[in-house]
């Protein structure tokens, strides 16, 4: 389990996160949602230790993230996979080299074992046979899938995804969601997804955390989203008149039944 305890963060006096506490469970898709500027990315960067909070703690099991020395932090990070918003694939490397990079850096596998592992990860994200392509030759969705393959190549215990669906068409976005969800369930890892994609919320949102103006405004599951009366949640999820109408129709149908 990953726990965030009373996280505060400010940049030169401007408060970005204020007293955020929550915990994330294994085998479930934990979604952090919120409007742009709500502090999602900062929170995610704090959770993985790329940013230090002004105060507060992050626990990975019984380990306090910010009490680790550099070597211990590096060891912990080897258990973390991360999918970046822009995929962050190394342009000068092929797909295969990108995925193999963490193996080359940290594993003691033989060359053959590494190749097998890379092929397995590529198959897992439905990109078998694309080993020799460069990131520039791939579509946005394919780049995201390579990013996922690289994130899981070291068999991580924790998977972090920053806006995995941004810039993708709805169908590809659903495929990416399904892929992340199946990896989470099959490998029983702790997955934390930073998103403002409503499809993701309603499809894979096992545990949802709504950040609003730097505070945790609501937590619940995808089933509770439709029935919640939390105003901040409603104004965020059902922002358009179309979705508001849809919610009223849903409430009516539930009431009729």
């Amino acid at each position: 389990m990953i726990r965030a305890e009373n996280i505060f963060k400010d940049f030169s006096g401007q408060v970005v996160l204020s007293d955020v506490s929550c915990s994330f469970e294994a085998g479930k898709a934990n979604l952090i949602i919120g409007r742009s500027g709500a502090g999602k990315t900062v929170f995610l960067k704090i959770l993985i230790g790329l940013l230090k909070p002004t105060s507060g703690k992050v626990w990975f099991g019984d380990t306090s993230l910010f009490d680790l020395d550099k070597q211990q932090l590096r060891e912990l990070r080897m258990q973390i996979g991360m999918l970046f918003q822009g995929s962050a694939l190394f342009d000068s490397m092929t797909v295969e080299d990108n995925i193999r990079f963490p193996l080359d850096m940290f594993s003691k596998m033989t060359r053959g074992e590494k190749s097998k592992r890379v092929d397995y990860c590529l198959e897992r994200v439905n990109l078998a046979g694309n080993n020799k392509k460069y990131p520039s030759e791939l579509s946005g969705g394919m780049q995201k899938r390579v990013g996922i393959a690289r994130a899981i190549v070291l068999k991580p215990s924790y998977l972090f995804c920053d806006e995995p669906n941004s810039g993708l068409d709805p169908k590809t976005a659903i495929l990416i969601d399904e892929l992340i969800y199946s990896i989470t369930q099959d490998d029983q890892i702790i997955t934390i997804i930073n998103t403002h994609d409503m499809n993701s919320v309603m499809e894979i949102g096992d545990h949802i955390f709504l950040l609003h103006e730097g505070r945790l405004a609501w937590t619940g599951s995808k089933g509770e989203v439709l029935t919640s009366t939390n105003e901040t949640l409603e104004s965020f999820i059902f922002a358009s008149p179309f979705l508001q109408r849809l919610k009223r129709m849903y409430a009516k149908s539930v009431h009729t039944i």
Partner: peptide, 14 residues
Amino acid sequence: QKEHIDAMEIMGVN
């Protein structure tokens, strides 16, 4: 800027 350095940091690379 392309978050390559962050990606390596997360992997545990110095």
